[in-house]
Design a protein around this nucleic acid. Structure first.
Length: 272
DNA sequence: CCCGGAACCTGAAGGC
DNA sequence: TGCCTTCAGGTTCCGG
């Protein structure tokens, strides 16, 4: 499930390959992936446009075009972007053709991934919360964002309007590192807990990028290779396994209908 | 406004 | 062997 580190890995791999090139065209194999505008207009507006920059905002990949438009992709659960795959991906939804003959295939088993081609990227990513790895993101900003939110901290952390890029896996990891129970009310966190959480969020995201993302399920980089961040996970997707710190079996509970993994001993509900 | 829950999706996995 | 149900979770939508 591509979160910030996975999308950042895709962005940093693609940037040097795409910047300065241009799209010769695009084939839309499944119109469902085109969110905006119509597939016909999408195809027309992309043809023969230069690529100015490859950026990321939260979990969105943003490709800036010479026309001033922004091509935006979101991978949701199972989307992948593959450069010149040897064998045709079984769930190819769109194929981008570059002026040097390269092909970029957007493949998505569950068809939840989306693409936009818009004048103003803000239409798509304008309401996102701050970038957790930006220099301006401080523990004070995090404290302000969590504010008086009465919801479970796990759910609040995964809310993209509060903080951009953190999803189910990295939220579980950050809460474990900070020693905070995922059901704690966001508004109940002490200043010291928010400081620990701030450091933990940055740590797990930087580590995730350095490990080239987590391939818990279908995530692959543009070369089709798996990431290694999942090998370092302490609680995420490790239900029943011993906590690496205390040996207690890691629990899994649903929060907002999402599996949440934590250590019931290291992350006590009444901590703080 | 805020929250919880369901829908969107499909392939894997488990039950019978 | 095979059919059926359940589950996975990022985002969006809807109802209370």
């Amino acid at each position: 499930m591509p979160e910030l580190p996975e999308v950042e890995t895709i962005r940093s791999d693609l940037a040097p390959l795409l910047t300065g090139r241009s799209f010769s065209g695009v084939e839309i194999l499944d119109p469902l992936v085109v969110r905006q505008p119509s597939p016909e207009e999408f195809t027309r507006n992309l043809a023969s446009k230069g690529i100015v920059a490859v950026e990321r905002r939260g979990k969105y990949l943003i490709i800036r075009l010479s026309s001033g438009d922004a091509l935006i992709l979101h991978f949701r659960m199972t989307g992948v972007l593959l450069l010149n795959p040897d064998v045709a991906p079984p769930h190819a939804r769109a194929i981008f053709h570059l002026d040097n003959g390269d092909r970029l295939v957007f493949s998505d088993r569950r068809r939840l991934g989306k693409m936009w081609l818009v004048r103003d990227a803000g239409e798509v990513v304008g309401k996102l919360g701050p970038e957790p790895l930006a220099t301006g993101f401080t523990s004070e900003v995090l404290a302000e964002r969590l504010g008086r939110r009465p919801g479970a901290i796990k759910a609040v952390l995964c809310d993209q309007d509060i903080l951009a890029g953190v999803g189910n896996m990295y939220a579980d990891e950050a809460l474990f590192l900070a020693g905070i129970h995922p059901l704690r009310k966001a508004s109940s966190l002490s200043r010291a807990e928010i400081e620990r959480l701030y450091q933990a969020i940055r740590k797990v995201l930087f580590q995730g990028i350095s490990d080239r993302g987590a391939s818990v399920d279908t995530y692959r980089d543009v070369s089709g290779n798996t990431g290694e961040a999942q090998l370092r996970f302490k609680v995420a997707h490790r239900g029943g396994q011993p906590c690496p710190d205390c040996g207690t079996a890691i629990q899994r509970i649903p929060i907002r209908n999402r599996g949440s993994y934590f250590c019931p001993r290291c992350q006590k509900p009444e901590n703080g």
